[in-house]
Simulated assay, not measured.
Amino acid sequence: MEFVQFLVIGVVVLGSACLQGSIGFGLGMITAPVLALLRPDLLPAALLFLATLTSLTAFVRERHDVDWRIVGWGALGRVPGIAIGTVAVIMLPDAGLSLMLAITVLAGAAFSLVGWSPAASHRNMFFASSVSGIFGTATSIGGPPISLVLRSLDPSSMRSTMSAYFTLGSILSLSGLAIGGEVQTSHVIAAAALLPFMITGLWLSNFVIRRADRQLLYRLAVGASIFGALLVIAEAVRSALG
């Protein structure tokens, strides 16, 4: 990875991790489009490694109110989704995966703005997790359908259950990709190199969350996600026409 390229990606990871720690999302939705533009070969595994550590950090901090039955149904639902997502990574070219990623980001942004909140039932969690497994494995972005279902829980239980689910779900997705031969040494090295940026961003979130307007941060994260996704689509169109 060239130094300037690495620095750009690192700064994006730092900023998106800060947003993740402040409002609960941002790392995947913002960083994935940047990686799709600069280093598509690192997706999805390198970002999934970082996402696993982020979710684990949140889980250790807020593990007391986890609804383990919902997490269990989510884990069951994620398995078939992981299989489909892994096949997509194996079969689709980089351009196809980049477009899939951009569409996932735009759909995720739309989900985040929807006021509808289905009940956090076992059935809803199973189906939402299947969708999350497909896109979380193929693009590293599987949060929106789960956030939609868990939105009806009280805030403490929602944060705890979500962090537990995404820790387990990311590990399962990485396992599926490894079985499919889609986890390389370069992914591990890239994730390790970017880890200090992510840790710094999460640390900064402790200060940002006390001082910044959460609604402003939320709009910033959604806007940055949409902008990145549109850039990915524009680049894919340019490549197809050029």
Rank of each mutant, 00 (worst) to 15 (best):
F3E: 01
V4F: 14
Q5E: 14
L7C: 11
V8G: 04
G10I: 01
V11S: 09
L14H: 05
G15A: 06
G15Y: 04
L19F: 09
Q20D: 08
Q20V: 07
Q20L: 10
G21M: 02
G24I: 06
M29D: 07
A32V: 10
L35R: 03
L35D: 00
A36M: 02
L37P: 10
D41K: 08
L42M: 08
L43E: 13
L48I: 04
F49N: 10
L50N: 03
A51N: 14
A58Q: 13
A58C: 00
H64T: 15
D67S: 14
V71Y: 02
A83N: 02
I84N: 10
G85M: 14
G85R: 11
G85P: 02
T86I: 02
L92Q: 03
L92Y: 04
P93R: 09
A95G: 08
G96K: 12
G96C: 07
L101F: 09
A102L: 12
I103K: 00
I103P: 05
L106T: 05
A107K: 10
A110I: 12
F111E: 05
F111H: 09
S117R: 15
A119Y: 03
N124E: 03
M125A: 08
F126N: 06
G133Q: 13
G133K: 13
I134F: 10
F135T: 10
T137N: 04
T137A: 03
T139R: 02
G142I: 02
G143D: 06
G143L: 06
P145M: 03
S147K: 02
L148P: 02
V149Q: 09
D154V: 05
P155R: 03
S156M: 12
S160R: 05
M162I: 06
A164P: 13
Y165R: 07
S170C: 15
I171M: 07
L174K: 09
G176W: 12
V183L: 11
S186K: 13
T200P: 07
S205D: 07
N206R: 15
V208L: 14
V208E: 01
I209N: 11
Q215R: 14
L217T: 08
L217M: 11
R219Q: 13
L220Y: 12
V222M: 01
V222Y: 07
L230H: 09
L231T: 06
L231H: 02
I233K: 07
